[in-house]
């Protein structure tokens, strides 16, 4: 049987600089057979190793509908992410996974979607967006509300235009007050505020959100408030310190679940049932 802690060797094929401290890494596995057989779901994550420095979990920002490579978008925060940012094209890294449950695509099919992202929280949503766009007929209207502190901190800038021009997709971009520049044509305001302003009807709709914890909190409150979303209609993906990715090391245990194994994607209803540690 497979050794669950052994990473597979992968090569950095391309590095895209998203913002001053966020980069997207495009990787392929060294083993071609693995590259072909590696499948995953939008919303799942991998453990990314830089040998000698350590390992950390990152969501897959690419979509399983676009095979041939995987992508992770990573913000420079600590020891491991610093080492990842120091990588160059051609460098070897370790990847193990995919882990976690991923987005419940079955439940999303046929529904209208509103995707609410903040900062680097767009990364898991990007996987879902690409997935939806590649299977456009299976889903209803898509509304993307995305914001960052400032215009310079918006990720996937080129792709944002591409998404906007896709059929039945509406994009609302926003930056926090004071984060706009002279060319800025989008909204100005915090993401939860903009969500309430756009006020997408909850009819036959699912709301999927990811971003900083404080943003998620207000999105959840706002959506279930006057906007009228039921907790079952809201999906979020949680961040938690993880090590093993398999529900053994214990640190991502919240309530009876392990975020790494039973999550990271949960409905707001499920989170409510877990008690109020989040």
């Amino acid at each position: 049987m497979e050794n669950i802690y052994l990473p597979h060797s992968a090569i950095v094929k391309e590095i895209i600089s998203e913002t001053a401290d966020i980069k997207t890494f495009r990787l392929t596995f060294e083993d071609e057979r693995l590259q072909k057989s590696f499948t995953y779901l939008a919303g799942q994550f991998v453990e990314f190793s830089v040998y000698g420095v350590g390992e950390a979990p990152f969501c897959l920002a690419s979509s399983p509908t676009r095979p041939g490579q995987i992508e992770c978008t990573i913000k420079k925060m600590g020891k491991v992410t610093q080492a990842i940012h120091d990588l160059e094209v051609g460098d070897q890294v370790g990847i193990r996974g995919p882990y976690g449950n991923g987005f419940p695509l079955k439940e999303l099919r046929g529904k209208n979607l509103v995707l609410v992202g903040g900062g680097i929280g767009l990364a898991p949503l990007r996987s879902l967006i690409q997935n939806v766009l590649d299977k456009r007929d299976e889903y209803g209207d898509v509304l993307i509300i995305y914001g960052a502190k400032s215009t310079e901190e918006l990720v996937y800038q080129k792709e944002l235009e591409e998404w906007e021009n896709s059929p039945r997709v509406k994009m609302v971009l926003t930056v926090d007050p004071g984060g706009e520049d002279q060319k800025w044509q989008g909204e100005i305001g915090f993401v939860p505020t903009i969500l309430e302003k756009v006020n997408p009807s909850p009819d036959n709709r699912m709301l999927i959100t990811c971003g900083p914890p404080i943003m998620i909190r207000y999105v959840l409150l706002g959506a279930t408030g006057e906007m009228g979303y039921r907790p079952q209609q809201i999906i979020t993906t949680l961040e938690m310190k993880m090590k093993c990715g398999l529900g053994k090391c214990g640190r991502c245990n919240i309530g009876r679940v392990y975020i790494c194994k039973d999550g990271p994607v949960f409905t707001y209803q499920q989170l409510k049932d877990l008690g109020n540690e989040f």
Partner: peptide, 17 residues
């Protein structure tokens, strides 16, 4: 049985946490 995993001097180790 909680543990941590870290890289130490050319080794990936897991240890009690």
């Amino acid at each position: 049985h909680c543990f941590d995993i870290a890289d130490e001097e050319g080794e990936r180790v897991r240890f009690w946490d």
